[in-house]
Amino acid sequence: MKNKNEFYVSYIDGSLGTKTKQTLKWFALSAVLLIIVSAILFSFSQKPFKNSTFELLSETKITGSFHEKPYPMLRVQIAENTFKNVLLLGFGKSSANPFLEKIRKEVKDLNGKTLSIEGNLIYYNGKTLIQITDDEKVTLSSTSKNRLPQKEMISTMTLEGEIIDPKCYFGVMKPGKGKIHRSCAVRCISGGIPPVLATTDKNNLSQYFLLTNLKGEPINHDILPYIGKPATIKGIVERMEDWYVIKIDISNITELNKTSKIY
């Protein structure tokens, strides 16, 4: 009487039994179906990419009036009586300042002077930034002093939002969200990237505020413990053409017991 239990040893008998073949077929089919279903579920769980742009593989030359109160920017005319203030960033997790040192040796006070900068543009939601990769691509076009953007006092406000690193959030990283990006944002801001408060109003419209101390000076290191944590921040809000600035005291930051929508 033959044993109904199949036992396969490849070097003795190269043929598979009927039951073994059926088991392997069902296992392979189940594995394929599991992979497909898992991939579909994973794709639906991911956040969609933003329509942001980072021109990593191409460089654009822009010319405008340099100013750095509170952070290095270039005031570029885009139409008659219309200007855009482009936030200047360095390569990697660095501010623009190391890339401006060479030109500062020629002209100590760059405020109001016309500079031409060639770099990688980043733009999203009405904001434009440029990454400088080489100090040789920062040139002085004119020493005559141009009009700087005027700041308009709005009011003292309490805003709810999260402090972000604008370089990665606005386009360098896509989607630029999630817990791993919080530590990245801390490193970027500690390296000199300007901190920005991202808020959303009742109509789901986003607005962004450059953060400074009460004197209007950079606030990178003091702000590090609060990055990517939902909070209310009280401060003096000013409009600087196409940007808002909020002057704050660190003691006026109140963390909220909420899950981060960004990180």
Rank of each mutant, 00 (worst) to 15 (best):
P70F: 03
T18D: 04
F44K: 11
S30R: 08
R182S: 01
L115M: 02
I130L: 04
T128G: 03
L89F: 13
K84G: 08
T143R: 12
P98S: 01
N85H: 03
F99N: 04
P72G: 06
F66V: 13
L56G: 15
V196L: 07
N5P: 01
L129P: 02
E68A: 11
L24M: 05
P225L: 05
P194F: 01
T60Y: 14
H181F: 02
M240Y: 01
F27S: 12
K4E: 09
G64R: 13
S190W: 03
P149G: 12
T23Q: 08
I36N: 05
K69C: 04
G112S: 03
Q150K: 12
Q150L: 14
L210Q: 12
I40F: 12
S155G: 03
D242A: 03
L211S: 15
I154Q: 13
R239D: 10
N146H: 14
A96W: 01
V186M: 14
V32E: 04
K84A: 04
S206V: 04
N51E: 03
T23N: 08
I132A: 03
K105R: 06
K215C: 05
L205G: 02
F27Q: 13
P194C: 10
C184R: 03
L88A: 05
F99S: 07
P48Y: 00
E106D: 14
T114W: 07
F91M: 02
E59M: 13
C188N: 13
S38C: 06
A198E: 12
N81K: 15
Y244D: 09
D13K: 14
T114F: 04
N5S: 04
E238I: 07
P225H: 11
E241A: 04
E162Y: 02
E238M: 14
V107H: 06
L140K: 09
F83I: 02
C184L: 01
N5W: 06
H221T: 10
A96I: 05
V32M: 12
G14I: 08
G112Q: 02
D249L: 12
C168H: 00
T199S: 08
E68W: 13
K177V: 04
G126C: 14
G119P: 06
M240F: 00
I78R: 11
T20A: 06
K234S: 15
S260F: 05
S260R: 01
C168P: 00
